[in-house]
Amino acid sequence: MADDEKKGDDSKRVVNTYPLIRHSDMSDETQNEAAEIVTTACEKFAANNEEAAKMIKLQMDKKFGPPYNVVVGEAYGFEISYEIGNVCYLFFGGNIAAVIWK
């Protein structure tokens, strides 16, 4: 039983490196693209959330047109007004939450 649990934990840790979309009203295509960008940015700047956010913002601006806002962090609260169809709130890597909106 204990072994099984351990295995489960391990697999959980491994599994946690994918982006988990919590809330989004983007089109599927945009959403996937955004998730990909977040993945790349957060992997590249694992230790620097600010840089990661910057990168996500720039990439999103480039691909879908400015102005995008990006928040990347571990613990925060927010209330935003966004243009409909342009919000994505997702978790990544088991401890990072990113919110992208226009």
Binding site: G73, A75, G77, F78, Y82, V87, A97
Partner: peptide, 10 residues
């Protein structure tokens, strides 16, 4: 426009 709010912790 719409508003969206959440609080997130680790």
């Amino acid at each position: 426009m719409a508003t969206f709010s959440a609080v997130v912790t680790t």
